[in-house]
């Protein structure tokens, strides 16, 4: 058999056996048998020495072509077999994807904090700076500087906890208005969330320890229409774009004119439902133009500056927003309650 015939035979045999190989190990054996150092192709190449010199280049080319053809088939067959093996392995690894996920038990923010953060976010976006004030406070900041002189009936209305005649538990975050003004930096925009206290017995809608949110702006040319615009914006941010607001005259000693703001019921859209007691409106906050006396007492010239202030009950916002029907739940800290937020 000539070398040429031999090469053709090796190639045919090699390809045939590779194509019939069933797994990568067998394939490797075949590779060794044909292409290995002592393989058939190497053996056959030894016949090159009998080839006439002028034919050697041609015959050398033929050896290389044979080798290449075998290698190509080998690679193809190898990847086919590897893929099959991987498929088989993955098929065996199939899991039940409906089994539960493994959670790291992340804790939950208190709904009052969530409500506070929401309100803060809205006002910070409008350029308001968050400030704090003491909870155990001087009578002056809680009352007198807010145009509530000694023996004013409003002091009775708010059922104040006293430490002594001069020091009390603040009944309203409005005390922070005075601290803000006293910093002497005008204009300013501040909000002050915080804890306040009034002597109310605990029930579904009252707590002697609760939270308010105060807002105040003092600048040149602040108008009542600015108050309306700002609070309308706030209501829309808090309760959604379809929210409508209504301002009703009211009285607070430290603002004039004063108002209460109602928002259209976000449950029924204002048609009237159980949630808004058929009114279509829900009372949300008190507000007003800062009383000139109040500005003056804290060293701001009311002829030059004006401002507005607002106060929101945070429990009320949380109860409304999350439809919580009993304020006591907020202070029980039952994990089944907290987990829902």
């Amino acid at each position: 058999m000539s070398l040429k015939e031999k090469l053709a035979q090796i190639q045919a045999e090699a390809i045939e056996s590779m194509l019939s190989a069933a797994d990568p190990d067998v394939l490797n054996d075949i590779r060794v048998r044909f292409l290995g150092k002592k393989g058939l192709l190497t053996e056959a190449s030894k016949g090159m020495k009998d080839v006439p010199a002028e034919e050697r280049p041609k015959m050398g080319q033929l050896v290389n072509d044979t080798k290449k053809a075998i290698e190509e088939t080998l690679e193809k067959r190898k990847s086919a077999l590897m893929a099959a093996v991987r498929e088989k392995k993955m098929a065996a690894e199939t899991i039940d994807v409906t089994m539960p996920g493994r959670k790291s038990a992340i804790g939950h923010r208190h709904p009052l904090t969530l409500a506070t953060e929401e309100v803060e976010r809205i006002f910070i976006g409008m350029g308001y700076e968050v400030i704090e004030g003491p909870e155990v406070e001087y009578d002056y900041y809680n009352f007198e500087a807010l145009n509530i002189p000694p023996n004013h009936p409003a002091k009775d209305e708010q059922d104040t906890f006293y430490i002594n005649p001069q020091i009390l538990l603040r009944t309203q975050t409005s005390s922070c208005q005075v601290h803000a003004m006293e910093r002497g930096k005008v204009p300013f925009k501040v909000v002050a969330p915080g804890r306040v206290f009034r002597s109310d017995e605990v029930d579904a809608t009252h707590s002697p320890n609760f939270h308010q949110f105060e807002g105040m702006i003092v600048d040149k040319d602040i108008t009542f229409s600015d108050l309306k615009g700002t609070l309308e914006q706030f209501a829309i941010e808090l309760f959604g774009p379809d929210t409508k607001v209504k301002f009703r005259p009211h009285h607070f000693p430290f603002t004039e004119p004063s108002a209460e703001m109602d928002v259209s019921c976000f449950k029924c859209g204002g048609k009237g439902c159980r949630f808004c007691k058929g009114e279509g409106w829900i009372e949300i906050l008190g507000c007003g133009m800062v009383h000139p006396k109040v500005l003056k007492m804290s060293g701001i010239d009311p002829d030059e500056y004006s401002g507005f202030a607002l106060g929101v009950g945070l429990e009320r916002i949380a109860l409304l927003k999350y439809e919580i029907d009993d304020m006591r739940l907020l202070y029980e800290n039952d994990i089944r309650f907290l987990k829902q937020f």
Binding site: E120, I124, Y128, E129, I131, P187, D219, F224, S225, D226
Partner: peptide, 22 residues
Amino acid sequence: YDNIPTTLPKGSSTMGGLPLNL
């Protein structure tokens, strides 16, 4: 009150934010 227009304050722009401790 309902007939009073709604506007936004035109005054100085201020920086909003939380103090460091909060």
